[in-house]
Simulated assay, not measured.
Amino acid sequence: MGDPLRDDSWSIGKGVTMTILQNPLRTRVHATGEEPFLAPPHWHLWHEEHHIILKGRIRLTQNGVTHVLGPEDGEAVTPPGVVHSLESFPGEEVIIEETTRPSVETTAQKIIFFRNMFAPGVLQSFLSTMQVFYYGDAYPATPLGIRWFEWLMVVVIGGWVAGLLGYQIPDKRLRLDERRFPPSKKN
């Protein structure tokens, strides 16, 4: 169902779809329960995420603390730098919406991040995935939990190695966040 590079709704798993919604700009994940939805542990250097559970329940883990959230819990906020993961319950339908801060432009870039991440072949290639992480302000949480190592892994593998080997992100509208690499000041 759908092509993430062209359509506003596409499949990200068996019975799991991602849809881009407008007014306000946001993403929606709908998992029918056929297969659980999982966003593995990761963190962001510059943006925060806001999640609202519209239906069902979700496990949100932030820095090792797990909360079970439902519609009655309102908006869940994950600040920059917090390792987090999302997981639905097997056999349960769930609908989650996400926006990011500090701006609508941040959410627009996050949508382009998702378009790249779910483009054909990206998740099957470690180099492609790291390259999308590099451009999209995302860092996988490793068992060691050493943030500088996780950051460096994404920069070296996704930013340098993948490019040197000819890898290119599918949707080139995804822009590198300049706050990670401020322009040098000339004297």
Rank of each mutant, 00 (worst) to 15 (best):
M1R: 13
L5M: 12
I12N: 05
K14T: 07
G15I: 01
G15Q: 12
V16G: 03
V16F: 09
M18S: 04
R26A: 11
T27V: 14
R28D: 02
R28V: 05
V29P: 02
H30E: 03
E34G: 04
E34L: 13
E34W: 02
L38A: 12
P40R: 02
W43R: 06
W46H: 15
H47G: 07
I52G: 03
K55S: 09
G56N: 11
I58F: 09
L60A: 10
T61D: 04
G64V: 10
T66Y: 07
P71D: 14
E72H: 14
G74E: 09
E75N: 03
V77C: 04
T78L: 06
P79Q: 11
P80I: 06
V83N: 05
E87A: 08
S88P: 15
F89N: 00
F89Y: 14
P90K: 12
E93G: 12
T100E: 14
R101I: 01
E105Y: 08
T107A: 15
F114V: 06
F114P: 02
F114W: 15
F114C: 05
R115L: 07
N116F: 07
N116W: 08
M117F: 13
S128I: 10
M130W: 08
V132P: 00
F133D: 12
D137A: 11
D137Q: 10
L144H: 11
F149Q: 09
F149T: 04
E150H: 00
W151N: 01
W151K: 08
L152W: 02
M153F: 13
V156A: 10
V156K: 00
I157K: 10
L164T: 02
L165W: 06
Y167G: 01
Y167K: 05
Q168H: 15
I169F: 12
I169N: 03
I169Y: 07
R173G: 11
R179G: 01
R180P: 02
F181S: 02
F181P: 02
P182T: 01
S184Y: 06
